[in-house]
Design a protein around this nucleic acid. Structure first.
Length: 234
DNA sequence: CTCCTGAATT
DNA sequence: AATTCAGGAG
């Protein structure tokens, strides 16, 4: 029985990764989506955005995010007003999630209070409701940490690149996480467009705008040349 | 691995 | 109407 090599570079060699990074960021420069949480330096607002975005469209989150962040500037303020938080989140639906968000706020408030900055040593995955994906987004933004964010959409990109049948559980597979980590290392070692958070955003936007779940727009894709799935369409 | 849950998609 | 989605937790 053949065993697939588990290293990222064996699936996508280093020079291909470099080429993908260059093309991806060129595309991102003109195609990026702009949302308020992408420019905030407020760690609490950034976390809240990621929680709201779970299972919810970005455009729907935008107005709620604006209202929420005006009302609550830090975790302590939000924790003092759980009813108001519920009210702010209500239009997003998913009430079970809102209960969880309140618990997350409570933990953040108790642990970090109203402090403006988090220490770079903080491990946010110890916070209830925050896992690897959210941690990577927040740490890459706040500390330029070279952590690849892997949600189902980004996992889909890596599966298509390497012609592996996609399944939502793929985002947890060791070979995919290794590949994503390798790509982040290659990309951040580049001399330009090497901001880890921007690289995470570029992949998210490519997944949302081009490498869609069904009917991907391979013709418009900046990395079709390097994608095994895209190559089949030529 | 399975479960959660209701919006989005087909 | 039926299926898919989606990070996190167990």
């Amino acid at each position: 029985m053949e065993r697939r090599s588990k290293t990222g570079t064996s699936l996508l060699n280093r020079s291909t990764q470099k080429a993908i990074h260059r093309k991806l960021m060129g595309w991102f420069a003109t195609s990026r989506r702009n949302y308020p949480w992408r420019t905030t330096q407020n760690w609490f607002h950034l976390i809240m955005a990621e929680l709201m975005l779970r299972r919810t469209r970005s455009d729907q989150v935008a107005s709620v995010y604006e209202s929420f962040t005006k009302k609550y500037r830090n975790a302590s303020q939000a924790n003092l007003d759980p009813d108001g938080v519920q009210e702010e989140l209500r239009s997003l639906g998913l009430n079970w999630r809102n209960e969880q968000i309140l618990q997350t706020i409570q933990f953040l408030s108790h642990t970090f209070g109203s402090r403006r900055r988090l220490q770079a040593t903080v491990d946010l995955t110890e916070t209830p409701g925050i896992g690897d994906y959210c941690n990577a987004m927040v740490r890459s933004k706040l500390f330029q940490d070279t952590l690849p964010a892997i949600d189902s959409n980004i996992a889909r990109i890596y599966c298509r690149l390497t012609d592996v049948k996609f399944h939502p559980e793929m985002r947890r597979k060791a070979w995919l996480r290794q590949l994503a980590a390798d790509f982040m290392q290659t990309a951040t070692a580049s001399s330009s467009n090497n901001d880890p958070f921007e690289i995470n955003l570029a992949l998210l936007d490519l997944a949302a705008l081009v490498c869609k779940p069904s009917a991907p727009r391979c013709i418009e894709c900046p990395i079709q040349k390097h994608c095994k799935t895209g190559q089949k369409k030529l």
